[in-house]
């Protein structure tokens, strides 16, 4: 299987001198196509820093990130924008939808900066909204949607440019348990269709749906385990029954 991303001696420091924080201290890692990776670790262990680096939202202090065979660790701002647009989809804890902008337009946003011809934008966005079960809410504004629905729009937006790697930093962090499970159901379905996923969580219940678990502590990768994922649909059903009784 091909590596979607290869990471070598990845380091990131914030600040300088006395106040310097070593957020990542030499991480080595390969992620294969089709994997569903959960990143865990205590707060402040460098999970978000790691995600931002592989998501090309920030540049490393040292080390290499090789995404789809291309070294992206030293690229210019413009080249990084293109990489993000072509290969990456990012889902945030706080959804980060554009206010006063419809669900459909939010989903089409990445296509605005892509080479895809204008005529195909709407169709693409519609397909992605269907995938997350929101085909009925195209013209709703974010303020008219529930948290779970907003996160689904955000997932559709991350999918719309057909990225090689889907990244999510605590996507269920702002949601209640049931909605979180629904979101995980979507992620798991995407993974089963072949999407490569990296997802940060500090909840073991959420990490259980992944096929591989990375543990961070003090900016270092301290454990890397494969596992058999639990089924999110089963978990959701069980949760609903538990809530009902």
């Amino acid at each position: 299987m091909a590596s979607v991303i290869r990471i070598r001696q990845l380091c990131k420091q914030y600040g300088a001198g006395e106040q310097q924080v070593k957020a990542l201290r030499g991480v080595d890692l390969d992620i294969q196509q089709g994997e569903f990776v959960a990143v865990m670790g205590p707060s402040g262990s460098g999970k978000s820093t790691f995600m931002n680096l592989i998501g090309c939202l920030d540049s490393p202090s040292s080390g290499q990130i090789i995404l789809q065979g291309e070294d992206v660790s030293q690229l210019s701002a413009n080249a990084l924008a293109t990489v993000r647009n072509n290969y990456l989809g990012f889902v945030f804890q706080q959804f980060n939808l554009l206010a006063r902008t419809s669900a459909l337009e939010n989903v089409m946003l990445p296509l605005l900066y892509s080479m895809l011809p204008d005529e195909q934008h709407k169709h693409r966005a519609l397909t992605c909204l269907e995938q997350v079960g929101l085909a009925q809410r195209l013209w709703h504004m974010p303020s008219q949607l529930s948290g779970g629905q907003q996160q689904r729009v955000a997932i559709a937006r991350a999918l719309v440019n057909e990225p090689a790697l889907l990244l999510a930093d605590e996507p269920t962090g702002a949601l209640d348990t049931q909605t979180g499970l629904e979101i995980m159901q979507i992620f798991q379905a995407l993974n089963r269709q072949g999407k490569t996923l990296v997802l940060v969580t500090h909840e073991p219940d959420i990490a259980a749906f992944a096929s591989r678990i990375l543990m961070f502590r003090d900016g270092q990768l301290v454990s890397d385990q494969q596992q058999t994922p639990e089924d999110a649909s089963d978990a959701l059903l069980a949760f609903k029954q538990g809530a009902a009784s």
Partner: peptide, 16 residues
Amino acid sequence: TREIGLRMAVGAKPGD
């Protein structure tokens, strides 16, 4: 600013 960040995250170049 957050909107700008988001646009950049989904592929907007500084020029855009």
